[in-house]
Lab assay of single mutants.
Amino acid sequence: KRPMNAFMVWSRGQRRKMAQENPKMHNSEISKRLGAEWKLLSETEKRPFIDEAKRLRALHMKEHPDYK
């Protein structure tokens, strides 16, 4: 399984929150809205998620050196 990218790290928490606030909303609609919100974030707002994704990628490479 591939490590999560920055968007996936961010959206994991956001998706849960949005699903709780809008229980009838379909997952595909939640995904569209999350994608639009992510695009509006500044580089500074994205930075912690980018850093976490880098950390996860490095850990994955260490644990699975033969993974392509």
Score class of each variant (00 low, 15 high):
residue 7 F to S: 01
residue 4 M to A: 08
residue 17 K to G: 04
residue 54 K to Q: 08
residue 34 L to S: 00
residue 43 E to A: 09
residue 19 A to D: 06
residue 46 K to W: 00
residue 3 P to G: 11
residue 29 E to V: 04
residue 54 K to Y: 05
residue 11 S to I: 02
residue 67 Y to F: 09
residue 21 E to T: 03
residue 23 P to Y: 00
residue 17 K to A: 10
residue 8 M to P: 00
residue 20 Q to N: 13
residue 31 S to R: 05
residue 17 K to H: 06
residue 44 T to N: 13
residue 54 K to R: 11
residue 7 F to E: 07
residue 68 K to I: 07
residue 15 R to Y: 11
residue 44 T to V: 12
residue 24 K to S: 15
residue 5 N to G: 07
residue 13 G to A: 12
residue 45 E to I: 05
residue 53 A to Q: 02
residue 28 S to L: 10
residue 42 S to F: 01
residue 44 T to E: 13
residue 47 R to F: 06
residue 4 M to W: 07
residue 63 E to W: 04
residue 43 E to R: 05
residue 24 K to F: 11
residue 59 L to A: 12
residue 5 N to L: 02
residue 27 N to G: 12
residue 28 S to K: 08
residue 9 V to Q: 03
residue 38 W to P: 02
residue 21 E to G: 03
residue 7 F to T: 00
residue 30 I to Y: 04
residue 43 E to N: 02
residue 27 N to C: 08
residue 12 R to F: 14
residue 11 S to V: 06
residue 31 S to Y: 11
residue 14 Q to R: 11
residue 2 R to A: 14
residue 60 H to F: 10
residue 6 A to Q: 02
residue 25 M to A: 07
residue 39 K to Y: 03
residue 28 S to R: 06
residue 43 E to T: 07
residue 40 L to W: 04
residue 28 S to Q: 11
residue 60 H to K: 14
residue 62 K to P: 14
residue 13 G to T: 13
residue 26 H to D: 15
residue 19 A to G: 06
residue 32 K to G: 06
residue 34 L to R: 01
residue 63 E to P: 08
residue 26 H to A: 13
residue 68 K to N: 15
residue 63 E to F: 04
residue 67 Y to N: 10
residue 65 P to H: 11
residue 22 N to W: 06
residue 59 L to I: 11
residue 52 E to F: 00
residue 27 N to Y: 09
residue 2 R to T: 12
residue 55 R to P: 03
residue 28 S to C: 10
residue 38 W to V: 01
residue 50 I to V: 11
residue 53 A to S: 05
residue 63 E to T: 09
residue 26 H to V: 07
residue 37 E to W: 01
residue 34 L to H: 01
residue 68 K to P: 03
residue 44 T to P: 10
residue 51 D to E: 12
residue 35 G to T: 14
residue 14 Q to S: 05
residue 15 R to Q: 11
residue 56 L to S: 06
residue 23 P to C: 05
residue 50 I to Y: 15
residue 22 N to L: 04
residue 23 P to D: 03
residue 49 F to V: 02
residue 2 R to E: 15
residue 62 K to L: 11
residue 39 K to I: 06
residue 5 N to A: 03
residue 53 A to G: 02
residue 26 H to T: 15
residue 19 A to P: 02
residue 23 P to V: 02
residue 46 K to F: 00
residue 54 K to N: 14
residue 45 E to Y: 06
residue 36 A to W: 07
residue 26 H to Q: 13
residue 12 R to I: 11
residue 19 A to Q: 14
residue 28 S to M: 09
residue 60 H to C: 13
residue 65 P to N: 07
residue 29 E to T: 03
residue 63 E to Y: 07
residue 18 M to R: 02
residue 29 E to W: 00
residue 44 T to I: 11
residue 37 E to N: 06
residue 47 R to L: 09
residue 54 K to G: 06
residue 35 G to A: 14
residue 61 M to V: 13
residue 21 E to H: 07
residue 7 F to L: 01
residue 36 A to P: 02
residue 8 M to G: 09
residue 7 F to Y: 09
residue 5 N to F: 03
residue 6 A to E: 05
residue 29 E to P: 01
residue 55 R to I: 04
residue 8 M to Q: 13
residue 47 R to C: 02
residue 24 K to C: 08
residue 20 Q to A: 11
residue 61 M to C: 12
residue 14 Q to K: 08
residue 52 E to K: 00
residue 59 L to K: 07
residue 56 L to Y: 05
residue 47 R to T: 08
residue 45 E to Q: 11
residue 16 R to L: 14
residue 17 K to Y: 08
residue 50 I to Q: 10
residue 61 M to I: 12
residue 28 S to A: 11
residue 15 R to A: 13
residue 15 R to T: 13
residue 51 D to N: 07
residue 48 P to T: 03
residue 63 E to M: 10
residue 30 I to L: 07
residue 32 K to D: 06
residue 62 K to G: 12
residue 60 H to N: 14
residue 66 D to N: 11
residue 35 G to V: 15
residue 46 K to T: 02
residue 47 R to M: 12
residue 16 R to S: 14
residue 7 F to H: 00
residue 19 A to Y: 07
residue 58 A to E: 10
residue 68 K to F: 08
residue 58 A to L: 10
residue 3 P to W: 02
residue 55 R to D: 06
residue 23 P to I: 05
residue 22 N to Q: 06
residue 43 E to M: 07
residue 16 R to Q: 15
residue 38 W to H: 02
residue 28 S to E: 13
residue 39 K to V: 09
residue 26 H to I: 07
residue 52 E to I: 03
residue 44 T to A: 13
residue 19 A to E: 15
residue 39 K to E: 14
residue 17 K to S: 06
residue 14 Q to A: 09
residue 25 M to W: 06
residue 56 L to I: 10
residue 21 E to M: 01
residue 24 K to L: 12
residue 60 H to D: 15
residue 35 G to F: 10
residue 57 R to W: 08
residue 64 H to G: 12
residue 15 R to M: 14
residue 49 F to T: 00
residue 29 E to F: 00
residue 3 P to L: 08
residue 44 T to M: 08
residue 35 G to S: 15
residue 57 R to I: 06
residue 7 F to R: 02
residue 56 L to C: 09
residue 54 K to W: 04
residue 52 E to N: 00
residue 46 K to G: 00
residue 49 F to D: 02
residue 23 P to K: 05
residue 42 S to C: 06
residue 34 L to T: 01
residue 43 E to Y: 06
residue 20 Q to R: 07
residue 15 R to D: 06
residue 1 K to Y: 04
residue 52 E to Q: 04
residue 8 M to D: 15
residue 21 E to Y: 00
residue 40 L to P: 01
residue 41 L to P: 00
residue 14 Q to I: 06
residue 18 M to H: 07
residue 14 Q to D: 02
residue 48 P to G: 03
residue 37 E to G: 06
residue 3 P to V: 09
residue 49 F to C: 02
residue 52 E to H: 03
residue 15 R to E: 12
residue 29 E to K: 01
residue 64 H to M: 15
residue 45 E to W: 00
residue 43 E to F: 05
residue 29 E to R: 01
residue 24 K to G: 15
residue 21 E to L: 04
residue 58 A to M: 12
residue 60 H to G: 14
residue 39 K to D: 08
residue 58 A to I: 08
residue 41 L to E: 03
residue 4 M to S: 07
residue 41 L to Y: 03
residue 42 S to A: 05
residue 62 K to F: 07
residue 7 F to G: 00
residue 39 K to G: 08
residue 59 L to G: 12
residue 47 R to S: 08
residue 65 P to M: 13
residue 35 G to N: 11
residue 42 S to P: 10
residue 9 V to M: 08
residue 41 L to A: 01
residue 13 G to W: 07
residue 21 E to S: 04
residue 1 K to T: 10
residue 4 M to C: 03
residue 12 R to T: 15
residue 46 K to A: 01
residue 55 R to F: 04
residue 62 K to R: 10
residue 40 L to C: 12
residue 45 E to D: 09
residue 52 E to G: 00
residue 3 P to R: 08
residue 9 V to S: 02
residue 56 L to E: 10
residue 5 N to T: 15
residue 32 K to R: 12
residue 53 A to M: 01
residue 16 R to W: 09
residue 56 L to F: 04
residue 36 A to M: 02
residue 37 E to Y: 04
residue 39 K to L: 07
residue 56 L to P: 03
residue 60 H to L: 09
residue 2 R to G: 15
residue 13 G to C: 10
residue 62 K to E: 14
residue 40 L to Q: 14
residue 14 Q to H: 06
residue 55 R to C: 06
residue 10 W to R: 01
residue 41 L to R: 01
residue 17 K to M: 06
residue 12 R to Q: 15
residue 67 Y to A: 14
residue 30 I to C: 05
residue 10 W to F: 07
residue 25 M to Q: 07
residue 67 Y to T: 15
residue 20 Q to W: 04
residue 49 F to K: 01
residue 7 F to A: 00
residue 37 E to P: 00
residue 25 M to K: 03
residue 9 V to R: 01
residue 37 E to L: 07
residue 9 V to G: 01
residue 16 R to M: 13
residue 41 L to H: 01
residue 36 A to G: 01
residue 68 K to L: 15
residue 1 K to N: 13
residue 11 S to R: 00
residue 48 P to F: 03
residue 4 M to L: 09
residue 37 E to R: 05
residue 12 R to H: 15
residue 37 E to K: 08
residue 44 T to H: 09
residue 65 P to K: 13
residue 67 Y to E: 12
residue 46 K to D: 00
residue 26 H to M: 10
residue 41 L to F: 03
residue 44 T to W: 09
residue 23 P to T: 06
residue 36 A to N: 15
residue 40 L to N: 14
residue 32 K to V: 08
residue 41 L to D: 05
residue 65 P to V: 11
residue 24 K to Y: 05
residue 40 L to F: 04
residue 49 F to Y: 10
residue 15 R to L: 09
residue 53 A to D: 01
residue 67 Y to R: 12
residue 17 K to D: 08
residue 24 K to A: 12
residue 19 A to I: 13
residue 17 K to F: 02
residue 5 N to Y: 02
residue 29 E to H: 00
residue 50 I to E: 15
residue 19 A to W: 06
residue 39 K to P: 02
residue 45 E to V: 04
residue 19 A to R: 07
residue 55 R to Q: 07
residue 36 A to R: 08
residue 55 R to A: 08
residue 8 M to W: 12
residue 16 R to H: 15
residue 46 K to V: 01
residue 16 R to D: 15
residue 19 A to V: 12
residue 13 G to S: 08
residue 57 R to M: 10
residue 34 L to F: 02
residue 66 D to L: 06
residue 9 V to I: 11
residue 54 K to M: 10
residue 1 K to P: 06
residue 52 E to Y: 03
residue 7 F to I: 01
residue 45 E to A: 07
residue 25 M to G: 04
residue 15 R to C: 04
residue 51 D to S: 11
residue 4 M to G: 07
residue 31 S to Q: 12
residue 25 M to T: 06
residue 48 P to K: 05
residue 54 K to C: 10
residue 38 W to A: 02
residue 56 L to H: 06
residue 20 Q to E: 15
residue 52 E to W: 01
residue 55 R to K: 11
residue 66 D to G: 10
residue 31 S to M: 15
residue 15 R to H: 11
residue 52 E to R: 00
residue 42 S to D: 07
residue 38 W to C: 02
residue 48 P to H: 03
residue 2 R to P: 08
residue 25 M to E: 07
residue 66 D to V: 08
residue 37 E to F: 02
residue 50 I to W: 06
residue 58 A to V: 12
residue 8 M to K: 03
residue 64 H to W: 09
residue 34 L to M: 04
residue 7 F to P: 00
residue 61 M to G: 13
residue 58 A to P: 08
residue 23 P to H: 02
residue 55 R to V: 05
residue 16 R to Y: 08
residue 28 S to P: 05
residue 6 A to P: 05
residue 38 W to E: 03
residue 58 A to H: 11
residue 25 M to H: 00
residue 50 I to L: 08
residue 42 S to Q: 04
residue 49 F to E: 01
residue 6 A to R: 00
residue 8 M to N: 12
residue 59 L to W: 10
residue 13 G to V: 12
residue 54 K to H: 08
